[in-house]
């Protein structure tokens, strides 16, 4: 994939905490409008990978490029401004603030007209949030909270959205309804990097997939290829 056709590219990213190295030379690419899933068991390094991309953790070496521009080592708020939206694992909402507050905070760096437009779009994507707009986030159901987390990140008007395990703690039916918005984002030119533990869920939602194991990319391919690849299951079972 050429430089211009790549939304997000990681080249040999090494990262960790203190003396512990979690990510070992991770490389991956995400094309414009693509949905790519990073699959991995608990502890494989998915959240660390997303934290490194989002600027919450400075990589020790390697490059992270957003449309060709190197963003590694920037602070998290600079990364957000560069165009990466981050839906952190565990959602991390502001329990005592309303749904509308979350959207306004997400869009606070946009011009007012753009913010209003994005807000309308969010209410179009998630009609239930319009009904609940004056409700405190802490009082919403798990599925609604996940929608708020995604909408808050989309309000930053990102070119790339990092979606870290949105399925955690949600009933399968709810997860499917959350994943239904992915094709709509694609239509708007937003590329999505998704982290997911569940193989079936992840592969059903994505165009391509990478399998992360002990901080290394061990397999990659199109979602349909990997769905039929026994090695994926073997990695999960530690064989």
């Amino acid at each position: 994939m050429s430089e211009a056709a790549t939304a997000l590219a990681l080249e040999d990213v090494v990262a960790g905490y203190g003396p512990v190295t979690i990510l070992h030379e991770v490389s991956l690419v995400l094309g414009p409008g693509e949905v790519v899933v990073v699959l991995g068991a608990n502890g494989a390094g998915k959240t660390t990978l997303f934290r490194a991309i989002a600027g919450l953790l400075a990589p020790r070496s390697g490059h992270i490029r957003l449309y060709g521009e190197a963003i590694e080592g920037r602070t998290a708020h600079a990364v957000t401004r560069a165009g990466i939206g981050h839906v952190p694992s565990g959602r991390e909402l502001f329990p005592r603030l309303t749904v509308a507050d979350h959207l306004d905070l997400g869009g606070r760096l946009c011009l007012p007209a753009r913010r209003a437009e994005l807000k309308e779009r969010m209410f179009g994507l998630f009609p239930v949030l319009h009904e609940r707009r004056q409700q405190r986030a802490g009082t919403l159901s798990g599925g609604e909270q996940q929608m708020v987390a995604i909408a808050r990140a989309l309000m930053t008007d990102p070119r790339v959205l990092l979606l870290d395990e949105p399925s955690t703690g949600l009933a399968p039916k709810i997860v499917i309804s959350v994943f239904e918005i992915l094709p709509l984002l694609k239509a708007q030119g937003v590329s999505v990097l998704l982290a997911e533990q569940s193989l079936t869920l992840g592969l059903s939602a994505a165009d391509r997939a990478y399998v992360l194991d002990h901080g290394r990319i061990v397999l990659s391919g199109s979602a349909s290829e990997l769905a039929n690849d026994r090695r994926v299951v073997d990695t999960y079972l530690g064989r």
């Binding site: 708020h77 957000t80 565990g90 502001f94 905070l105």
Partner: peptide, 22 residues
């Protein structure tokens, strides 16, 4: 606006950072 970012940061620091709050 700034007051709200302060409340947000006190309720979830990670959430605040994720939307570019300094």
């Amino acid at each position: 606006g700034f007051g709200k970012t302060l409340l947000a940061a006190s309720q979830s620091e990670v959430g605040a950072v994720s939307i570019g709050i300094n």
